[in-house]
Amino acid sequence: MKTSILLTCALLISNNAFASKHVHWGYSGEQGPDNWASLSGDNFSCTGNNQSPINLTGFIESELKPLEFYYQAGGNKIINNGHTVQVNYEKGSYIKADGIQFDLLQFHFHAPSENHINGESFPLEAHFVHADKNGHLAVVAVMFKEGVENKGLAAAWDKIPMHEGDSNTFVKVIAANSLLPANKGYYRFNGSLTTPPCSEGVRWFVLKEVVEASKSQIEAFKATMHGPNNRPLQAINARVILQ
């Protein structure tokens, strides 16, 4: 049963950035985060004890093994689903963590950042969403600060769909690794999806090094969303955050 649920979640993530086709949700008002759990019985995890995002602080020193990135160019389609802008990825790219292969399904963005680091919020955050062969999920998060133009982001934004429901196909597939910092050191915690159904048991890897994006690139994403698309911070509770 658990494996079946995880595989279903992975399929939702790959196809629709966590969005349910049957239950409308959003980031404000009656359909906002405070009410997600009441919108559908499928969203029961939204009131769980291991929810994301969080403020990463109070770190525990640990000898974390390096994340192994095996990314190749594979971003073939960009979608505006009304909740985020998402780039779907072809098979063949993955990370290795805990000796397990997690295949890259897609990456998407939130503005402002969902996670904070030592109380600091960032203007943009990217989530690279992966799943292993059993549907277990792993998310690599990258923070952006305002600075010079980001060439990797420019390749995606060249086809950014401005309206909900729109999508574009890349003539030349784009490379996810162009959005990653040179230093792959990370913070680690156990959490959840940051959108309904808020499923827990997600491995989170937040890269320490912050990358830059230009003000116009950050504003271009905001213009497509017509408002913030970040879930409020959730309680850490008994979790530890490793570095």
Rank of each mutant, 00 (worst) to 15 (best):
G92M: 08
D98N: 13
L104F: 15
Q101P: 03
Y89T: 07
H83V: 00
H83P: 00
L105P: 06
S93E: 08
T84C: 11
L105M: 13
G99R: 01
I95R: 01
S93I: 13
V87C: 13
N88Q: 13
Y89H: 11
V85K: 06
I100R: 14
D98A: 11
N76G: 10
D103S: 10
N76M: 09
I100D: 04
G99D: 05
H83A: 04
D98M: 07
H108N: 11
E90H: 11
V87W: 00
D103F: 10
G99M: 04
D103L: 03
H108G: 09
K96L: 12
N76V: 15
F107G: 01
L105Q: 14
Q101R: 11
I95H: 04
K96H: 04
I79R: 02
Y89D: 01
S93D: 08
G92R: 11
E90T: 04
I95C: 12
A97Q: 14
I100M: 09
D98C: 09
V85P: 06
A97W: 15
I100K: 11
H83N: 04
L104E: 03
F107A: 02
G99Y: 02
D98R: 12
H83Q: 08
K77Q: 09
Q86G: 00
G82A: 03
Q86T: 13
F102N: 07
L104S: 05
H83I: 06
I100Q: 11
Y94K: 12
D98V: 07
D103I: 02
Y94E: 08
L104P: 00
E90G: 00
N80E: 03
G92A: 09
L105S: 10
Y89C: 10
N80W: 10
S93G: 12
V87L: 09
H108M: 06
G82F: 02
V87A: 05
S93C: 12
Q86P: 00
G82C: 02
I79Q: 02
V87P: 00
N80V: 03
N76S: 13
I95V: 15
I79F: 03
F102W: 11
A97D: 15
